[in-house]
Amino acid sequence: MSIRIENVTKNFNGKTAVDNITLDIPQGEFFAFLGPNGAGKTTTVKMMAGLLRPTSGTITVAGYDMSKDLIEVKSMLAYVPDQPYMYDKLTGREFLNFVGTLYNMPEKDLSMQTDKYMELFDMHDYIDELTENYSHGMKQRLILSATFLHRPKVVLVDEPIVGLDPQSARLVKNMFKEQAGSGVTVFMSTHVLSVAEETADRIGIINNGKIVALGNMDELRRRTQTDGNLEELFFHIMSQQNCA
């Protein structure tokens, strides 16, 4: 399922957070979205998730216009926020059951998928405890399980690695790569440049609401005429931006 963002702008009280961006992400691509704090990353992801409406421009997923066919688009989407706020008074299992039912999953399938992700993320010990007792890492695992429960075609992720232990971080990275390999489109906003470099097929850099660089590692290296890693490329691009 491809994503197309066309001339999208988002203003908040007269201030432009995202400024006329255009992006095409083909099906099965793992796209990493980078940028400093306040650059417009989260706003872009939220607009793609349908939680914010663009001031102008259009977003289409698999040919569906988000402003017109939101329910169809949402049934294909999954979103992992940067801060996993959950219902404190539900257990992990109840939370998965709740989310699965809202996605109209059949009961049997929901139960099988719950068991699968419980196994994958090793959540047996705490799945039946209230989520108010979970650590950040435990919550992140649960959210990721809820994300993949209904087999989404497009996954939008905002800072998925923060708070995870090294083992879980590797598991998550591999999982996103596998999903992309199986045709799921992954759009990941992150500050962790090493993860983006390691996993992404293509990278976009946003600054002050505008896309300032776009391409795979080779394309970015050619553009900056630098032969370093993503961190060096990123700082090179940002320093060019600051000078401009």
Binding site: L51, E72, L77, Y85, M86, A146
Partner: peptide
């Protein structure tokens, strides 16, 4: 629902 609105806000439900 506040900060949890993303959960139900994201689901294919009116």
């Amino acid at each position: 629902e506040g900060k949890r609105f993303w959960i139900i806000g994201m689901t294919p439900m009116k």
